[in-house]
Amino acid sequence: MRVFLTLMRREWMSFFLSPVAYVIFVLFLVLMGLSFSMLISLLAEGSQSGSVMRQLLGESLFFWLAMLMAIPTITMRQFAEEKHNGTIESLMTAPLTDLQVVLAKFCGGLGFFAVLWLPTMAYAILLAQVSPAGAPLDYTSMISSYIGILLIGAFYLSVGLLASSLTRNQAVAAVITFVVLCSLFFWGFVPYYARGASWQEIGRYTSSVVHMMEFSRGVLDTRPVVFYISGTAWFLFITTKVLESRKWRA
């Protein structure tokens, strides 16, 4: 456990030691800030449609833009850089299991992702401060929104981690992740546009867009929770196998 925490801490710290983290931070906060300012202007016009969280996260294109941009930049270096620098060799010849390394990298990435979201909590506090009595802020939907973000984030990060384990080139890892995540995102609109009932059904089970909408409404359904946790586990398992494949691959 101590070994795992050490590994995870290094993984997490390494983000803050590289300039990439700060670039992600700035872009991410700009996008979320835009989203917030749009929300404010909507509220100022007296819009009553849905909850605040829903408009800040669920229905905001900026939210998805921020996710699709941040995740590949977080995961791209995780394995690709180690492979490129050769540090994977000293890492994997230390007495660590492959699973330990994959999980530490994943948790480190998730930790950084969580830190990325921390400043956005200020929006909620800000809103509560400036709103008149009977503020539109609803803590249940806030909590479920953040849980949803972490679940979707974890799933997307595991996709990125797999991409990073497949190549030694960070740019390639980022592009693969970005393309896969974009496909997942656009797949999320299937329930809105698909004709057949079965397609709509499948779409609803797998659409991150629909799920995020639900989470931001304060609905914490077990189906998406199970979907994201099992999806994450599956991608992490494949990543472990890819890492293991160095041993026998020609």
Partner: peptide, 16 residues
């Protein structure tokens, strides 16, 4: 691996 100290050829280190 607990009993080995292995220095690969390229001496990989974390530069940061």
């Amino acid at each position: 691996r607990r009993r080995i100290g292995y220095l690969p050829e390229s001496v990989p280190l974390y530069p940061e």
